[in-house]
Nucleic acid binder design. Structure first.
Length: 506
RNA sequence: CGGGGCGUGGCGCAGUCUGGCUAGCGCACCUGCUUUGGGAGCAGGGGGUCGAAGGUUCGAAUCCUUUCGCCCCGACCA
């Protein structure tokens, strides 16, 4: 017996969280670094997860009246220049296309030739090009609203990248809507935030706080930015989705105008909202453990893996027959608006290795089937959200009939676990000393997991920002719900209407 | 872009300070035998010229110069 490591993933979360995160991605086969700096290759298992996220979100967008469309990858540079704040926000991270042809160079390689008259930027986000298009589409109030989403890739030339959390190129969806009235646009902004929150909680099993960003954290060019914020297992915050009320800023910059019922010419009101492959990172950091990935059942590409165990050829035949028919029965069971997804892993490798393979990849349920199980009409079941050794024998009929319930239980369990974790590390703080202590690690020499979410009253001003910057803390958002008690800003002593969520963040 | 670290078979590393036997080790891989409700054991085997370029030297993974890339921390950000 080889000395099996205590955990499949090393280092553990406690020992080194960032390294653990990378190790999980590698061990679970989600993605890997590519030959291009800052860009990743999303492998089949990771992409299947993203596809599941896409499918659910896409359904939610359509239920709320949106349609998909597609706009160009390239944006003329002049488009970006039209909205001043927008330029400031994105100019530094734009990839720029300046040529359209390659020619043999003097040293044998290729050199760019055919300089473009106007450089094109690779979209970091599409407000400008979509806005310019909407300007052509909108003449009358009868043309509104426009409710469009696009699934796309965008490029932001970030200084520092991290797989899924921040890559130079990433996949996302961006909704862009255009309305006749301010209220309608505001309602849309809030509606899509609620959609994101519902997705995060109901599908990702990830509790989130819905809130509004302060001015310094706002999307460049937006009037207000709403976000959902989640707590990762290292107690840092991750912005998991944003919904922006753009007011008339982009409409004015790009002349999205229409005539209203009274023949008056008016600027439209626009919104934009998006979530990205960052959600995969959020999912990893919310649920995974020191044995690898844990996938909430409602997003899992496979719900159950059947692991046949057999020695003789004779056993093999009966075990495989049993597995095949069990697979069919399971696949006829309803789950989450579809059917249960089952895989039989009959690869000719050691049983232990096979089991760990699926543990590391986060398959929700493992069911071992050997001659003994065949004989007794049962299966030996292990759940990814429980201990590796917490396996139990379940009668086959019971297993099949209860599979939906078991997956639901696991889904709920994951959410509860995450919610409990967040609750334990969230507190209301009403004085600065306590606040400072909360965000100061005990051992400054080594990175350690500390802090969490703090709800404190604040008066939005530079003084507050300077104070928290020293602690490497940011204002995540001002919660939209249960936040009506006025108080005193713990940094300035000024009266404050609301509390904000303070946290260290990704 | 600032600070730190690292590039040696598929992966993880040792060797580099103090140049010198055919460049090692673990895992993975291949073959055989054994084992089989569990990340197997034994035996045999294949694969690297040490990120790249230049230099010093009788001799360079090791010293010097230049360069490319990656990771971590910071600033910035979905």
């Amino acid at each position: 017996m080889a000395k099996a490591p205590k955990t499949a993933i090393q280092p553990t979360r406690e020992a080194n969280y960032p390294k653990w995160y990378q190790a999980v991605i590698k061990a679970s086969d989600l993605a890997e670094n590519s030959h291009v700096r800052g860009c990743m290759v999303i492998k089949p298992w990771g992409y299947a997860l993203w596809e599941n996220m896409q499918a659910v979100l896409d359904g939610m967008f359509k239920e709320t009246g949106h349609q998909n469309a597609y706009f160009p990858l390239f944006i003329p540079m002049s488009f970006l220049e039209k909205e001043a704040e927008h330029v400031d926000g994105f100019a530094k991270e734009c990839a720029v296309v300046t040529h359209h042809r390659l020619e043999p160079g003097p040293d044998g390689g290729l050199v760019p030739a055919g300089k473009l008259e106007e450089p094109l930027i690779v979209r970091p986000t599409s407000e400008t090009i979509i806005g310019a298009t909407y300007a052509k589409w909108v003449q009358s109030y009868r043309d509104l609203p426009i409710l469009i989403n696009q699934w796309a890739n965008v490029v932001r030339w970030e200084m520092r990248t991290r797989m899924f959390l921040r890559t130079a190129e990433f996949l996302w969806q961006e909704g862009h809507t255009c309305h006749a009235t301010e209220q309608e646009a505001l309602d849309e902004t809030r509606q899509m935030l609620d959609v994101y929150a519902a997705f995060a909680e109901d599908y990702m099993a990830m509790p989130v706080i819905k809130g509004e960003k302060t001015a310094d954290e706002r999307f460049p060019g937006a009037v207000s930015t709403l976000s959902i914020e989640a707590m990762m297992q290292d107690r840092k915050a991750l912005q998991a989705g944003t919904s922006h009320f753009l007011g008339q800023n982009f409409a004015k910059a790009q002349e999205i105008k229409f005539q209203d019922q009274n023949g008056q010419e008016r600027f439209a009101w626009t919104t934009s909202w998006g979530v990205s492959t960052r959600l995969v990172g959020a999912m990893i950091m919310t649920h995974s453990d020191d044995d690898g990935l844990v996938i909430p059942p409602r997003l899992a590409p496979k719900h159950i893996v059947l692991l046949p165990i057999h020695r003789s050829d004779e056993d093999r035949v009966t075990v495989m027959e049993y597995c095949d028919s069990l697979k069919k029965e399971l696949e006829s069971q309803d789950y989450n608006g579809g059917k249960v997804k089952v895989e039989i892993d009959d690869r000719d490798i050691r049983g232990g290795e096979k089991t760990w393979h699926h543990i590391k990849r986060g398959v929700p349920i493992r069911a071992e089937v050997g001659p003994r199980d065949v004989e007794s009409g049962s299966v030996f079941v292990g759940r990814r959200d429980l201990g590796v050794k917490e396996k139990s024998s379940v009668p086959r009929d019971e297993f099949v009939a209860g599979i939906g319930k078991m997956l639901d239980e696991m889904q709920t369990n994951l959410f509860e676990k995450a919610a409990t974790m967040r609750k334990e590390h969230t507190r209301e703080i009403d004085n600065l000393d306590e606040f400072t202590a909360f965000f100061t690690p005990e051992n400054t020499n080594q990175p350690e997991i500390h802090g969490g979410f703090v709800l404190s009253h604040f008066h939005e001003c530079q003084e507050v920002l300077d104070a928290i910057k020293k602690l490497k803390v940011t204002i995540r958002c001002v919660p939209l719900e249960d936040n009506d008690q006025p108080g005193t800003c713990i940094f300035t002593g000024k009266p404050a209407e609301k509390r904000a969520v303070f946290a260290k963040a990704y």
